[in-house]
Design a binder for these strands. Structure first.
Length: 792
DNA sequence: ACGCCGACCGTCCGA
DNA sequence: CGGTCGGCGT
């Protein structure tokens, strides 16, 4: 029996819905994952639906994993047969199986933005396009948008326009697709577009999947683009034996949390759902189980400023709770220092633990200032986003070898590694091979094989032949070995390990990263006994993001962008950098639509908080190496006054040189304790009197604020450039062992290598590097990835 | 072929 | 600021 206790009326109604289209408008924190998982359980347990016929689609691996776990724990037998996956992984799997119909080999490569950019670069060069005038990136954006709209190159001009620029884009787009096809590669957008093409052009393939997946559930439906809409729409059009079309499609979303317009999300998909599926049952979930009443009041009030939305209002049975705290800081450093200090105090005094806190910002660039203070004050933190593990140079190099071994015709990968490590093969040689390949319609690797026929590069031939022999050697290794052995052989035989010595600064990091890649390969083979192939591994690796490896149970403060925070929740949330130009961010003319999207992002941020919410802005901050002065964000003024406590200017003075962070006592501690000057005077919220002026320190900041209305030149003239002596290098002296839960000499357990002894812990550039003696040998790994657990 | 250095430039969000 | 790229010298 599926247990429906603890569900409210609307939730229960959604769970009990069996056939036909269902639209669940689920406000933030209204328990939508709970509804989806219970509904899956109900379908299986009560309606005898075969788990094999149920598909649940999400956007991120993290959401998929969470759903998977909850489905597994809710359903006993057969839960593993429920298809729970992301759009991209699902399409990749469909295409591995049926891609031959479209002319792709089953082990096609999946290109990330870097790979795509390289292809575009080559094309621009070939077409003599001045990339100073039109950037590669703008082609990529246009092409991506076209793909999301399911517009193929040959229809581009018809669909988009016929300007000179459009014609150029259409030409580049067509060539780009040709190149990808020749390389047996797809980019992220191709995964969707090609799956839709497969469905449209091969009805028997579509029919196969329609029959298999008779119950569809889509999470975060407000973020779907046209291609995703079409994918779902086609799949849901299953005609049963009686010739009826049931549309057993359940979509869940919240138009107020649509924040991915920039990558093609079309909010109309959710707003028009009822028009597309006339018999849709609509259920609104408006009861929030996450936040205090004050936080919800603020969220409701802010989002109310948007015009294009479905009317709804979150409500809760919780009490008002703490007021929101809105703080003005002198600069970004003071902001970071103060927040770090506050977190530190609350944790040291035993009231809270680190994982209860999150610091959210608009752009990844803002993380640096926060990080510095976290390190400085000895606070363990986890940084989500930034440079993806898989986009690091050494990882990409290694993956390029693996792809070359796996997918012989991927010229991009071959070009990446042909001279890495250095083999004395230069640009002139590569160009000559390229020209030959083009002329004879060969892939790059095949052209290398025939280097003896290519004029002008005879001197490089011997080196080229050695390279070919090496790759073929690896292909032989692959036939008889597992992934770990293959990677080790490649890094060993090519001398890649040795090249790390070239830069002693980064050596340890890169070594640990490669070791971690090997660990991932080992884990992959372990988890996928049914298909531990190189292709499958590379596919998975291409489709994971940093946030997917985030473990919310680690005792660390979380630092991430507002976008990354969607779907997560924390007891205490700090939204920093609430400033005009930054948030809402202004990149040349903010129109109403963009403002509303930013406001939704603000709404998402506010609704992440369970108990307390801090919002802050700075009078000045460093942006792209320059000091800039921004006014407080309009979103601050949209907060209802009666739930907000104002704090005046703080953090203008930094920690002095002699203060160590074993005693992280800011000089302005006095002002902290006096912080009950906080008040809720409504008049304080007009822009001019945003800062009150009854304290000397505030007076100063008021001046700065008034200045910001003046000319930019005047400000820059008087601005103090960031002197290196102002910023001391943070020295992490806190014992790492305290943060990790283990130390040198402790016995720890690793998921693959078993129990070993920690022999050293050092601070890498981004994370702790832990060296452990396992029975299988000594391994060096990154703490955040290795997930080591202390054992007694 | 390759490494160094200065000029230039983009500015965000992400599967 | 930090990453990239082209020019130049070796």
């Amino acid at each position: 029996m599926t247990n429906l206790d603890g569900l409210n009326n609307e939730q229960r109604e959604a769970v009990l819905h069996d056939k036909g289209p269902l639209l669940i408008l689920a406000g933030a924190g209204s328990g939508k994952t709970r509804v989806i998982t219970h509904r899956i359980a109900y379908l299986i347990d009560e309606l005898d639906v075969n788990p094999y016929r149920i598909m649940a689609i999400t956007f991120t691996n993290k959401a998929a994993k969470e759903m998977r776990d909850r489905v597994d724990s809710l359903i006993g037998y057969g839960s593993e047969d429920v298809w729970v996956s992301t759009f991209h992984s699902t399409c990749a799997r469909f295409l591995r199986r049926h891609g031959e119909l479209l002319g792709y080999d089953r082990n096609f490569s999946i290109y990330d933005t870097d790979d795509s950019k390289n292809v575009i670069k080559e094309i621009c060069k070939r077409f003599n396009i001045d990339t100073k005038k039109i950037r590669e990136k703008s082609f990529m954006i246009d092409i991506s948008n076209a793909k999301n709209e399911l517009i193929p190159p040959e229809k581009y001009l018809l669909a988009i326009g016929n300007s000179a620029r459009d014609q150029m884009t259409a030409k580049v787009y067509a060539e780009y697709q040709k190149q990808l096809k020749a390389n047996n590669a797809m980019d992220f957008d191709d995964l969707l577009m090609n799956t839709v093409r497969l469905f449209r052009e091969f009805p028997e393939a579509l029919r196969y999947y329609q029959q298999r997946f008779q119950y569809l559930m889509v999470d975060e439906y407000q973020d779907t683009n046209k291609a995703q809409f079409e994918f779902i729409h086609l799949l849901a059009n299953y005609e049963n034996e009686d010739g009826d079309i049931e549309h057993n499609l359940c979509v869940v979303g919240d138009d107020d949390q649509s924040i991915y317009k920039f990558r093609g999300a079309d909010i109309r998909n959710i707003l028009d759902f009822e028009k597309v599926y006339p018999n849709t049952k609509v259920i609104k979930l408006e009861e929030n189980y996450r936040s205090t009443n004050n936080i919800l009041t603020a969220a409701n009030e802010v989002i109310r400023h948007n015009l294009a939305r479905k009317d709804k209002r979150l409500r809760t049975q919780q009490e008002d709770g703490q007021p929101l705290i809105c703080t003005t800081y002198e600069d970004d450093r003071g902001e970071a220092a103060d927040i770090a200090g506050e977190i530190s105090r609350l944790v040291v005094s035993g009231q809270e633990s680190y994982e209860a806190f999150a610091v959210l910002y608009r752009t990844n660039a803002q993380s640096r200032a926060i990080e510095e203070q976290m390190v400085y004050q000895g606070i363990p933190y986890r940084l989500v986003g930034g440079v993806n593990f898989y986009s690091r140079r050494e990882i990409k190099d290694c993956l390029a070898y693996l792809r070359t071994v796996d997918n012989g015709v991927d010229s991009q990968q071959v070009k990446r590694i042909i001279n890495v490590p250095k083999r004395g093969i230069g640009l002139a040689t590569i160009d000559a091979i390229d020209a030959y390949a083009l002329e004879h319609e060969l892939d790059f690797f095949e052209a290398i094989r025939r280097c003896r026929n290519i004029p002008g590069i005879s001197r490089a031939c011997e080196k080229l032949e050695r390279f070919v022999a090496a790759i073929e050697g690896f292909r032989n290794v692959q036939k008889t070995s597992n992934l770990q052995q293959l990677i080790n052989t490649i890094l060993e035989d090519t001398g890649y390990w040795d090249t790390l010595n070239d830069d002693p600064e980064t050596k340890d990091d890169r070594l640990a990263n490669l070791q971690e890649l090997i660990n991932k390969a080992v884990a992959f083979e372990d988890e996928h006994p049914e298909d531990p192939s190189l292709s499958a591994f590379l596919s998975e690796v291409s489709l994971v993001a940093d946030i997917d490896s985030m473990d919310p149970n680690e005792e660390k403060v979380t630092l991430m962008t507002l976008h990354s925070a969607k779907g997560l929740e924390f007891d205490h949330v700090y939204m920093v950098g609430m400033e005009e130009g930054l948030f809402p961010s202004d990149f040349g003319g903010l129109d109403q639509e963009e403002i509303e999207e930013e406001r939704r992002l603000c709404y998402v941020g506010i609704t992440r908080a369970r108990k307390t919410l801090h919002l802050s802005h700075c009078n000045s901050r460093f942006l792209r190496g320059e000091k800039s002065y921004n006014r407080p964000s309009r979103f601050l003024r949209e907060l209802p006054r009666h739930v907000v406590t104002m704090r005046g200017s703080r953090g203008s003075r930094y920690l002095s040189e002699d203060e160590t962070f074993s005693k992280p006592k800011p000089k302005y501690e006095d002002e902290f304790t006096r912080s009950d000057y906080s008040r809720t005077n409504p008049d304080n919220f007009s822009n001019n009197s945003f800062l009150s002026d009854d304290l000397p320190i505030k007076k100063k900041s008021f001046d700065a604020s008034a200045k910001s209305a003046g000319t930019l030149e005047a400000l820059l003239g008087s601005s103090i450039k960031r002197g290196s002596d102002l910023y001391k290098t943070p020295t992490p002296t806190a014992s790492p062992s305290g943060d990790l839960g283990y130390g040198v000499g402790d016995k720890v357990k690793h998921v693959k290598f078993g129990i070993g002894t920690v022999t050293s812990i050092t601070m890498g550039s981004k994370d702790y590097e832990v060296t452990v003696d396992f029975p299988a040998g000594t391994k060096k790994m990154l703490a955040s990835f290795a997930k080591l657990v202390k054992v007694d």
